[in-house]
């Protein structure tokens, strides 16, 4: 069941992107408004704030079969909720290093700051992350075999 395409030749990565509502989700919208094209690999989950994204959710995405994860919030200082992205930054910094430590490839889990006016940057990030994940191939380490 897990993405049938994985067993076929033409593998396309699936990447879960947790985007904060106020900046990064708006940036992704702006990419659309400006018609910046990027690979159709990203599945966006809208969250109120990057500070809402717990390490558990990131691990759950990998466990459920995501080949990569992207979490994006407002730039430091721009958080709609004053400080959510600052806490998130600490949580993510530790999680990223830790996942790499246990052998999850550095490019699987990615964090970015994208503002509401950075549509082009969003498209670039989506492209870049897709390429990085594509190079790694399907994620298997934390994948649950149902």
């Amino acid at each position: 069941m897990n993405d049938i395409s994985k067993s076929k030749g033409a593998w396309e990565p699936k990447i879960i992107a947790f985007l904060c509502n106020w900046c990064s989700y708006a940036g992704a919208d702006l990419a659309g408004v400006s018609r910046y094209q990027y690979p159709p690999s990203i599945r966006i989950v809208r969250v109120p704030c990057s500070g809402r994204v717990s390490p558990n959710l990131i691990l759950d995405a990998l466990r459920s079969g995501a080949d990569g994860v992207l979490v994006s919030g407002c730039h430091p200082g721009d958080c709609h909720y004053i400080s959510g992205n600052y806490y998130a930054r600490r949580r993510f910094a530790l999680l990223k290093r830790f996942l790499e430590f246990v052998g999850v490839e550095p490019d699987r889990v990615n964090f970015t700051w994208i503002s509401a006016s950075e549509g082009e940057q969003f498209a670039q990030v989506a492209t870049e992350v897709t390429e990085r994940v594509r190079k790694l191939g399907p994620a298997t380490h934390l994948l649950k075999e149902f």
Partner: peptide, 12 residues
């Protein structure tokens, strides 16, 4: 709920 959405993204 977030997990439901994430898991739905992966499975058919």
């Amino acid at each position: 709920q977030i997990m439901a959405a994430v898991e739905a993204a992966m499975e058919d």
